[in-house]
Design a protein around this nucleic acid. Structure first.
Lengths: 131, 131
DNA sequence: ATCTCAGTTTAGAATTATTCTAAAGTATTG
DNA sequence: CAATACTTTAGAATAATTCTAAACTGAGAT
């Protein structure tokens, strides 16, 4: 069976044509950063298109299942990272380009304790770049 | 002379009524996180209102002059932090609440080198919280 | 003080990423 | 195959932000 279908079934998501198409692209083993728009445009070229609403739905579902990592850097666009291992990012404000930082390249040796009644869900380090 | 006016002049910004009003509120010595909307609403109560466009303009100008720190966490809102010293943030996704982390509570003991031709402009650590 | 003008404010329109809606389509279960 | 719950979709709706162009104002020159 197609790998994407396995992933989808394992996460209680019906392997619809659209999800498989998106999954095949996202989970091909090559780390990617996509936006809803960039993914939508990419898929327009495919034999069968996927509507923009479905791209949004699918990205959000994949995030919920932790198959993708959502990264918000600027208001105008949300990035989805196929690399779900713990790592951080460079962001070039000029080119609006997101780059992975290898996890071994950042060491946070002291972390604050979470406020009462809360726990830490995710730690996101973004290093903004300039020329 | 009013403190805000001094700050404005020192940064080549004309001390207009609107900027002084906004500056008096933001730079009163108490650290704040505001959004354009929250600031706009706050100022509606004042004797003289300020238009939403001016709130946006002013926040951006203050950021450009590094009188404020812009923090983007989710697409739906941008936060402006009056604390411009180097520090990081907790963010509670549920309450959409931003909290300062004292700078001594985070130690990043190893940082990656910037990609060729780029330098590090800003390091932003956001710790997302859940219940 | 008054004049002049670049800088500033403003209301409302425009933009744009994202979400919503509700109708049509489809995978799954029995 | 039928029934049903889940999905997809086009297009409308939403909402934060930016833009526009006209009116206003602070600051220096006279």
């Amino acid at each position: 069976m197609n790998m994407t279908k396995k992933i989808l079934r394992a996460n209680d998501l019906r392997p619809t044509k659209q999800r498989v198409l998106i999954g095949d692209y996202l989970f091909d083993g090559i780390d990617k950063h996509v936006t809803a728009e960039s993914l939508f445009k990419k898929l327009l070229n495919e034999k069968r298109g996927v509507s923009l609403a479905t791209v949004y739905n699918t990205l959000h579902e994949f995030c919920k299942k932790e198959l993708l990592n959502k990264i918000t850097i600027d208001t105008d666009k949300v990035y989805f990272d196929t690399n779900i291992s713990s790592h951080h990012h460079f962001f070039s404000d000029k080119e609006k380009l997101l780059l992975d930082i290898r996890s071994q390249d950042v060491i946070i040796s002291s972390m604050p304790v979470a406020p009462k009644g809360k726990k830490i869900k995710k730690v996101e380090l973004i290093i903004h770049l300039e020329d």
